[in-house]
Design a protein around this nucleic acid. Sequence first.
DNA 1: CGGAAATTTTAATGGGCATTAAAATACGGC
DNA 2: GCCGTATTTTAATGCCCATTAAAATTTCCG
Lengths: 199, 199
Amino acid sequence: MPTLDNVSSATAAFGDKRAQLLRAAARCFNEKGYSGTSLKDVARLLGLTDAAIYYYIDGKQQLVYECYLHAADIGAHALECANTAGGTGLEIAHRYFSLHVAALCGDAGPVAIMSEIPALLPAHREDILARSRRHSRQFEAVLRRGIDDGSIIECDVRMTGNAIMGAINWIPKWFHGDATTAQHIEASFPDYLARGLAS
Amino acid sequence: MPTLDNVSSATAAFGDKRAQLLRAAARCFNEKGYSGTSLKDVARLLGLTDAAIYYYIDGKQQLVYECYLHAADIGAHALECANTAGGTGLEIAHRYFSLHVAALCGDAGPVAIMSEIPALLPAHREDILARSRRHSRQFEAVLRRGIDDGSIIECDVRMTGNAIMGAINWIPKWFHGDATTAQHIEASFPDYLARGLAS
DNA sequence: CGGAAATTTTAATGGGCATTAAAATACGGC
DNA sequence: GCCGTATTTTAATGCCCATTAAAATTTCCG
């Protein structure tokens, strides 16, 4: 039984299949909710038996946790990249939208919607909530920066951030992986979301 | 055992408690998902036993169905009211945002997020999906009208509509009924969402 | 107060699902 | 072709939950 450490060892197979598992789980969770998907559902997508999943991961709780962790990473990474490139607040926001949306529609996906946080184990829940809050605060900081530099209209950054996060978070609910829709999303979302911010 | 018909009969009590039940269920569903909430969870909110729920409704399936039906009605009604008042496409859209958001935050709520459609019985699912699709198409028609009359910028109405619906649909996920937050939502969302549409 | 209708509870029943252990199979190096 | 390890399956186990029927309680009208 290989551990997580030897991802780069002789067998990339284990790590690969584990990643496949996480993606299959995210897809199921988005369609039917965490509680609504049985491990048998996830297993079927991989051509496996439900019990086989335990070879790759500790249990269902660990599965959601890692899915949510991945989702949080995707968002945090997009915002971080957008920030380091610099520019006005509006430019950073627009770039963040593009990066996050592209990640949601790209190979990293499907990314799990964090829709059943109360179902997490307490320790996991607090971790995920902390990451989620941090991401919101950091995005609000971008908005405030834009207001200060005059690129973004004066607004309630908390509420405007919530609106934007809703639009983005909802994507995995209706986007199911076809490439042409992905293009439409990437072509429309960032522009629309940023237009509502412009001063 | 009163039927649904005598809502206005001697006992408004039955209808009232039934409405309470639907609201409690919507709250639970939004927090923990449909599959994640047991009837005991819903019952506890009302100070009842799980079995008592069956006095008011046929079962869990019927409960979600009616919650989703209510959610669909809220949205359809908001759009209909916004439409009949007339004006440019942009004005109608803005009015619709205000009405829908106010309904989500007001006494009609909590309104259930339609997040576990696959869990519905086939007949219920098709009904809800049809309503959902119709609502989307009607909103896209408003956008097209705005593009035609010049009030709304040229855009992919399908994608822009998806972005907007996401922002609105996500509200019940983080809004939990306090009045001051409701005011902030109603003051921020319609303006932000409409600003992204303006030509 | 008394009794019928309304409301709620207690007490089954059965099914689905996460989880586990042991057995079976696939697979790569020698 | 053979052996040990990796992978998967089969076969339990036990819990939680939706649902139901019957009993108990409340409500309210005469």
